[in-house]
Structures are given as C-alpha cells and as structure tokens.
C-alpha cells in the first residue's frame, strides 16, 4: 500500500514537472498559432452560453468548422420562412466559431441587408413608411455585420469590395464606399476596376471632388483601358464643377449633350 502511494506520488510529480517544463514552449506555440490564424479557440464560456452542451463538446473536441457549417445550413430554412431573427442567431454562432470565414460573413450580411430588407415590403401589417424604416434598419444591420467582419479580417479584399458595394447601392454612402475601395486598393488581389470605382465614389463624395479629379485624371493618362464611358462623364463633370480652365482640361472627353443624357439616366459603370 505504501509502495502504491509512493508510485502514485512519483507519477503525479513527473506529470507536474513535465507540465512546468512544457508549458512555456506550449504557450509560445499557442500564441504563434493563434497569430497565424491556424488556431482559433473561442472562449469556452461564450461557446457554452451560445451552444448547447453537445455542440459545445463537439466544438471543444476539435470540430469547430463542422459545427459552424451545421449552423449555416440550419439557417437555410429560416431564410425560406423569412425568420430573420432566427437566421441571425444561427449565423452569429457560425461567426463565433469561424470568424475568419469570409464567405460566411458576406452571406450573413447579404441575408440581412438584401433579403430581410426586401421582405418587409411583403409585410401587410406595416404601413409603407414603416416598411421603409424597417428596410433601412435591416440595411444598417447588414452593413454593421460587414464592418464587424472587416474588423476580424482587415486583409480580406472580398469583404472590402462587398462592403463598398453595399454602402454604394443600399445606403448611397459614397464617401464610405470610397474609403472601402481605398482599403481594397491597398490589399493584394483587388479587381482591376477597383481603382476606377474609387475615383467614381470620390467624385460623388462632397468636398473630395478635387481629389477625385486628380485620381481619375491620373488613370486617364495611365492606360487607355481606363477610358470607360463613366470615366469620361465623371471627368467632364468634375472639370465643370471645379472650374478647370479650358486650356487645362483633358482633350477628347465626351461632348456635353451626351454627358447630360447620361447624367440623367444616372447609370454608373457596372463591373
């Protein structure tokens, strides 16, 4: 019996000593793995709060992605039944588990700013002004989701591009969209049209017309591939707006008549 206790003591002592020896190496490794996004450990408390015990076990047992996928799939039926709050809850779980899944964020936001905001117009219980207000709420909510996503992954071009497009189309926030395009420009892998769109958005952002003109002019002279109808129109407009002396204006921009007809239809270049 004495021997047994002695042995148990020895075993515990070895495990403890081993733990003390390995923990510095292990902690450093863990920090590095988290920094390089290979490892993501959601706080155990949050996971237990949000998920049931079984899901939490699965997550903690190393199946985070699959559980996240499961919740995304579960959200599909909420989409069908237009249960937007339920859908948001499920995506929130997915977001907690896989905060670096770009497509997940974009889809989540899209459900809210596009699907949910459109669905309110089918809701007969609301008056029309109410419907518009509710739609705006959803749009703001969707944009908020994208901003959260950008915060998680400031290096994602896709997120910046999506954010810019949503700001431009849903909120008509051209200054915000310009900023998003600008951040996308700083990242690798942005589409070729990003730089032009940045200029177009600046042109529509009050107070930044000079900046817009300089940017678009630079592009105009840089490469003929930029000579798009939208660019001709915006440059010509800006020259008028900024009172650029006739002698300094860019030759060969589109004529005034064409310009006005386009301006009225209000169609920007579509990628």
């Amino acid at each position: 019996m004495k021997q047994l206790l002695k042995k148990a003591g020895l075993v515990i002592a070895i495990l403890m000593a081993g733990g003390l020896l390995r923990s510095p190496l292990e902690n450093r490794l863990e920090t590095r793995l988290v920094e390089t996004h290979l490892l993501f450990t959601p706080p155990a408390k949050n996971v237990l709060d949000v998920l049931g015990q079984e899901s939490a076990m699965a997550v903690l047992g190393g199946m985070r992605s699959v559980v996240a996928l499961y919740w995304q799939l579960m959200a599909i039926s909420d989409w069908e039944y237009q249960e937007w709050d339920d859908l948001a809850k499920k995506f929130e779980i997915a977001a907690l588990l896989t905060p670096r899944d770009t497509d997940m964020w974009i889809k989540y936001a899209w459900h809210i700013h596009t699907n949910a905001s459109a669905s309110v117009f089918d809701d007969a219980s609301m008056t029309e002004p109410q419907q518009y207000l509710a739609a705006d709420d959803y749009i703001e909510q969707g944009i908020g989701i994208l901003y959260r996503a950008v915060k998680q992954m400031p290096d994602s071009v896709d997120l910046q591009m999506d954010l810019a497009q949503v700001l431009r189309e849903k909120r008509q926030d051209y200054c915000g969209a310009a900023e998003a395009y600008k951040r996308a420009l700083e990242l690798e892998g942005h589409p070729a049209y990003t730089t032009r769109f940045y200029g177009y958005m600046l042109a529509k952002c009050p107070g930044r017309e000079r900046e817009a003109y300089e940017h678009l002019k630079m592009l105009w002279f840089e490469d003929e591939k930029h000579h798009m109808p939208s660019m001709r129109r915006d440059l010509a407009d800006l020259e008028v707006k900024l009172n650029v002396p006739e002698a300094l204006r860019i030759p060969g921009l589109e004529n005034q008549d064409e310009r006005f007809s386009r301006q009225r239809s209000g169609q920007p270049e579509v990628p």
Binding site: M16, E30, L33, L38, L39, G62
Partner: peptide, 27 residues
Amino acid sequence: VVLAVPNFALFNVVDGIAAAEPVDPML
C-alpha cells in the same frame, strides 16, 4: 489539471489548415 492534462486544443490547427490559412512549417 492544466499542468497534467495535455492541451489538446493545440492540435485544432486542422481547422485553420482546412480554411487554407498559410502554414508555417516551423510551427
């Protein structure tokens, strides 16, 4: 407990690898 039981969470890098995050062979 923290000292005696292995930190299995370290091995959950599988999720990151599957998400195509770049892997540092040193790690």
